[in-house]
Structure formats: C-alpha cells, structure tokens
Design a protein around this nucleic acid. Structure first.
Lengths: 157, 157
DNA sequence: CGTTACAGTTCTAAAAAGGAACTGTCAAGC
DNA sequence: GCTTGACAGTTCCTTTTTAGAACTGTAACG
C-alpha cells in the first residue's frame, strides 16, 4: 500500500485516513472545532512548524474539509473555516476525545467537558445503530462486501 | 508540542492521538476489527514493512489496546487480540469509516456494509448525546474546562 | 523611519518510513 | 539428515518526512 494511492483504496477507512490520518491533521481539526481559524493562531497553539501547517491546511482545502476565506483586503489575509464536510468530522473527533476521556485521563480528571446546548447537560457521545437505536458494540456487527468492494479478498472496511 | 510527550498533554484528543494517530495504526486497527490477529496476516494484507508492523504492535500492547497471546508452543508463536480497551476504539473506527462512506465513495458505492446482529439490518453509526439522545452536531456543543484542564489558556480537548 | 502583525516560503539537519535481506525455531517431505 | 517452508520477528541501508529556524512581502502604527 502506498500513501499516494491511499484515497483510491476500496476501503472507506483508508480513504478517510488519506485525509486525516496523521497526528497534525487531527490536532489541527481539534483546533478548528475549538473555533480557531487563522494561520498564526494554529501555529502558536499547536507549536507545529509553519511549513507543515501550510501543507496540512492546503490539504484540507483540497479535500473540501476547510475553505480558505479572505477576511481582509490589502494585505489580503485568509482564514480557514470548516465546511459541512469538515463539520461532518465531528463524530470522528468526539469519539477520539471520548476514548481519551475513558482511558487516558490522569487522577485530575478530564481536561474538557462538553455541554449539549439542546438539553443543557454535560454529556458523553454514544454511538448507536441508525436502525434500532441500540448502542453499538464491535461484537454485534457483521460486515458484508458492498457494491464498491474489490473483486478478490483484498482488505477493505 | 513534541511527540514523546503527547500523551501527557492536557487534552484527551492529543493523548489518544499518541496511541492511534498515524496512518498505519489506524489501518492495523481496521484489520483487528476484521478479525486479523497474526503478524504475517497483518503484513500481507497491509503491505506494511515488517519493521513498522512490529513497532506498532508493540506500541498497541504497551498501551493495552492489544494483548500478545501465545497460541502455540515450540516454536512459541503469538497473536494479537483486541482487549476491552481496544474494543472501545470501535466508535473511532466506525466514525472514520462512516465519514469515508459519506464523502469518499466513488460511483460504485461503499466497499463494505455493516449489519447489526441485534436487529438484523444494515445500518449507519449515529452519534447521540448520552443525556437527551439527540444526534450530536458540532454547533450544538459548548465546551468548558474540566478538572484536568491546564491552568492558563493552553490548548486542550 | 523603525517596529509589529500576518501569512506564508525557503533552507538545512534530524527523525521516521520504505525495502530488502537475514535470524532462529520448528515441522514436513524427500 | 538435508532441504524447504511457515512464522515472527530483527538488521541494514536508502529515501522521504518532519523539525527548527530564518527569510519574504504587504501594510498599519507611532
């Protein structure tokens, strides 16, 4: 498997990994959901090298996760805003945060709490089945090849 | 931010990224959920270099995501099995797959379909609020510093 | 006129990943 | 009893990525 063709793999996980599958991409995404939008702000909060930041932001724009919007003329200045496609990554980010909250906290507790504006309560994200509404567990799921599956027994998910 | 101290960051996302935040780790995890357990099997399905595979498996064992179980004596042979901690990564994997299913499929459709054994139907994963049961959207969530938050305004999630 | 803010780009050194071959234990076949 | 093959790695060397720091260009501020 080569990285430059990862997005063409017959596997939805591999294709998504082509977009968000490195450390900086996920950390940048975290900042996006915390309302960070500008180059200098990403850079100073993350301590990422400017070169990589420019690279990752370009990649996100190319994949339609962020859009580059001019917020000032002369000199032209741009900020990076989550598109709907980017907002749709929220479950990915939240499930990662939740795993960390469950398995990687120290004795002091969680660094961040989440409040659901709809109900006003602090919550955890729960993943359920769209059909029956029951919480999902790995052992209760069976997979089948779909229409986009490869011919032979190659890996996919 | 340095990678060797990533797991000590006051941020549940960063800590989880220290465990699963690279391309191969996520792909290896996918194989685990597809019931792959052995070194040679991971290697041939993924095309990962043996060196990196050995490295990543060790890391997963160290973090308690996989356990290394002897399945044969003389010569001693081991396989890698998801622990409960590893099984708890299922929502992470499923949310990544689902985003790919929504945004990265080609005209042929999804490579893989998921059936929920409880209800017998093909499903999508849906992330809901543990308190009110409504589907979660990024814009409906507000964050507060938790007990493990850093003193000043440093980044965390 | 000098300094600062912002959004990058360029350069070199260090770290990580890729690729291929090698190690060691055992079983099966000739 | 010698060779081949399976399995689970390790070692060595090359190529690619990333880190770290400095530099570029535009324009406002004092």
């Amino acid at each position: 498997m080569r990285w430059d063709t990862l997005e063409e793999e017959p596997c939805s996980l591999a294709r998504t990994v082509a977009v968000i599958g490195d450390r900086w991409s996920l950390l940048i995404l975290r900042e996006c959901f915390l309302r960070v939008r500008r180059f200098e702000e990403f850079q100073s909060k993350l301590g990422i090298t400017r070169h990589l930041l420019a690279d990752r932001l370009k990649k996100f724009v190319r994949y339609g996760v962020l859009r580059r919007a001019r917020y000032q003329e002369s000199p032209a200045r741009y900020e990076y805003i989550l598109t709907q496609r980017g907002l749709d990554l929220y479950p990915v980010v939240m499930s990662i945060v939740h795993w960390g909250d469950m398995h990687m906290v120290d004795e002091r507790g969680r660094p961040l709490l989440h409040e659901h504006k709809n109900c006003g309560k602090l919550f955890d994200p729960v993943m359920i089945c769209s059909e029956c509404g029951e919480p999902l567990e790995a052992k209760q799921v069976h997979t089948h090849p779909g229409p986009g599956a490869p011919k032979a027994g190659a890996a996919s998910a």
